[in-house]
């Protein structure tokens, strides 16, 4: 008989109907667990977007030594031009830099206007082509260029980028570990719910066995019940995370935009939504299989 045959589905719903409270309790527990996981995913998705948007604004500034020779300068320019990952190259002379600096800070500090020499060096601002390896390309090229003769220093906000990257790695790891703990917990919950459901129907299962029902016939409705518990919990959680997302967008989108350079607070991505639902199915199948197999194994040994 087909897994989704009408008979199995009918039996599944009849089982759920006769164990409404137990089923609801399991769905509610799964819902809470998935919601917590979903909130972490929401945080992760938006931090990732934020990081990507910062990544787009990152540019490499190469400061030149004041005493750089013309051949060294040519050599450096040649290195820039030969790198096809560099989109654009802007030369900023020390005078232009000083003008720009004075324009920005003279009103805020007397110190700037009181300086009677230009402390800034000549520099190149390099923009790299966008793509997933953009940051890596910047990092690799900066490592290559910083030891060239005539280069005083390179700058692309390396320290804070590294810190943020480390934070994202930590968050990813945390979600993974936390997810595994929740996953195991949810399997345990569904497994125990199905176990209670099986024991409440022990007489019925005994009778079905005597009438010649196969293990598959007894197991499939239990598996479907477990899947329904997992999927219902995950779908409800996705709805609740969506509500949280809408709440944040409604009340805090303006502040987020101004603080984080036009960040649009996003809902979970499609792959994450798909993963949450799939996890619900897997949790349901594993949880119910464990209990059903245990019961049928014991039943056979009697």
């Amino acid at each position: 008989m087909n897994l989704f045959s009408f008979d199995f589905i009918k039996t599944t719903f009849s089982n759920i109907k006769s164990n409404k409270q137990l089923f609801s309790l399991s769905v509610a527990t799964n819902f809470i667990a998935f919601t917590v996981l979903g909130i972490f995913f929401l945080l992760f998705v938006n931090l990732d977007i934020l990081f990507s948007s910062w990544d787009k604004h990152i540019q490499l500034i190469v400061y030149l030594d004041d005493k750089i020779s013309n051949p060294n300068k040519k050599k450096i320019e040649l290195l820039f031009n030969s790198n096809d990952k560099i989109d654009s190259i802007f030369f900023v002379s020390r005078d232009q830099a000083w003008e720009s600096f004075r324009g920005k800070f003279s009103s805020k500090s007397n110190f700037v206007t009181s300086l009677n020499f230009n402390p800034l060096p000549d520099s190149y601002t390099l923009r790299f082509a966008s793509g997933p390896d953009r940051l890596k390309n910047i990092r690799d090229f900066s490592e290559k260029i910083k030891n060239e003769n005539g280069v005083e220093s390179v700058e692309y906000g390396e320290k804070w980028i590294s810190r943020f990257e480390q934070f994202m790695i930590f968050l990813r790891g945390f979600i993974l570990v936390f997810g595994v703990v929740l996953f195991s917990g949810m399997i345990l919950i569904i497994s125990n719910t199905i176990k209670l459901s099986i024991y409440s129907r022990k007489d019925e299962i005994d009778l079905m066995t005597l009438l010649g029902a196969t293990h598959q016939y007894i197991k499939v409705p239990l598996l479907l019940e477990g899947i329904l518990q997992g999927v219902s919990g995950s779908l409800l959680a996705l709805v609740s995370v969506k509500l949280i997302h809408l709440y944040i967008v409604f009340w805090f989108q303006g502040s987020l935009e101004s603080v984080f350079r036009g960040l649009e607070f996003q809902y979970l991505t499609k792959p994450i939504i798909f993963s949450v639902i799939s996890t619900g199915i897997i949790v349901g199948v594993l949880g119910s299989s464990i209990s059903a197999n245990q019961f049928l194994h014991r039943h056979n040994s009697e």
Partner: peptide
């Protein structure tokens, strides 16, 4: 199961 289906109780 197949044998049990041949028995009515």
């Amino acid at each position: 199961p197949a044998l049990r289906r041949r028995i009515g109780v």
